[in-house]
């Protein structure tokens, strides 16, 4: 290789490097700009259980989609480019398929390799509950007490996706109306409270004199939502402190647009 070749090579390298640095700087500036513009909380992305602080979420989440795959009801989806820097990160579209509480161990958080969905919170709560349970019965559990159920129950109490908000104007019950028809028009999975099996919601025919589907199908029942009398023949769901924002109420709400929606938690 001659001396001139070396010089030419160096010039070529410098030219290419300059182009590389310029394009990297452009990408960086766009990333910075998007960071200010796209505040995902205001866009209302409902993150899966255990999601950490939104700013940290964007570097912890590697967009692998393991949480999408493990969810037994396929509630989790990956965001597209319209979500800016949140592209590829998981969210729940409660309208279509809510997180219905029917899983065995909050697997989405458990499977996350970078703890963008942090399982430790749930693990701790579950372990504490089981310890408490054993202490309560002096280490001798009666046959009808299932420690596993107690554990998962405690784990689900600490998860917090958001909170349900009711818009009275759209609510059927507020206008004293009932509802008859399929539970949802599209096919979604749901485990009704008190049942062991999941069902397809479009196969369930419901008939209510006064619409109270959100309260009936809430996995947390009276801890989270009750129907409150607001006048003669009128009622309105009232959201209580127990609400964790799973979104089942939004999914089963028969109005269009929904009278009850989940407001994502300020993470």
């Amino acid at each position: 290789m001659g001396k001139n070749d070396a010089k030419l090579n160096r010039r070529q390298f410098l030219k290419a490097s300059a182009a590389a640095v310029v394009s990297l700087a452009a990408v960086g500036s766009v990333a910075y700009w998007l960071k200010d513009k796209s505040d995902m909380r205001s866009r209302g992305l409902l993150r899966p259980p255990g999601a950490i602080n939104e700013d940290e979420f964007l570097f912890a989440c590697i967009k692998c989609g393991l949480c999408v795959q493990i969810c037994p009801v396929r509630a989790i989806k990956l965001a597209d480019w319209d979500a800016g820097l949140s592209y590829g990160t998981p969210y729940i579209d409660a309208d279509v398929q809510a997180c219905d509480f029917s899983c065995d161990s909050i697997q989405c958080a458990e499977t996350c390799p970078t703890a963008a969905l942090n399982f430790q919170v749930f693990k701790k709560a579950g372990e504490e509950a089981v310890t408490e349970l054993y202490a309560k019965y002096n280490n001798k559990l009666p046959a009808d007490v299932n420690p596993f159920k107690v554990q998962i129950h405690a784990m689900k109490r600490v998860y917090h996706l958001g909170i349900a908000k009711v818009d009275p104007e759209k609510c059927l019950a507020y206008h004293g109306k009932g509802y008859e028809g399929p539970l949802t028009k599209h096919r979604a999975k749901l485990r009704p409270p008190g049942k062991d099996e999941r069902v397809h919601t479009d196969e369930i025919h419901v008939k209510r004199e006064m619409c109270d589907l959100c309260a009936v199908y809430c996995p947390l029942g009276e801890d989270a939502i009750v129907m409150e009398k607001t006048g003669e023949g009128r009622m309105l769901p009232k959201i209580l402190e127990g609400c964790v924002g799973c979104g089942v109420c939004e999914m089963v709400c028969p109005t269009e647009p929904k009278a009850i929606v989940i407001e994502p938690a300020e993470l």
Binding site: N9, Q12, F13, K15, A16, S17, A19, A20, V21, L24, V27, G28, A31, Y32, K35, D55, L58, F59, C61, I62, K63, L85, Y87, G88
Partner: peptide
């Protein structure tokens, strides 16, 4: 020049460091 890929490699690592986000993954 094929060496330019190392510039990109270092650049994307730096971008992750500066923005605190996985910029390259987008």
């Amino acid at each position: 020049d094929i060496t330019v890929k190392y510039v990109f490699w270092i650049g994307f690592i730096l971008l992750a460091l500066l923005t605190g986000e996985l910029v390259f993954e987008n």
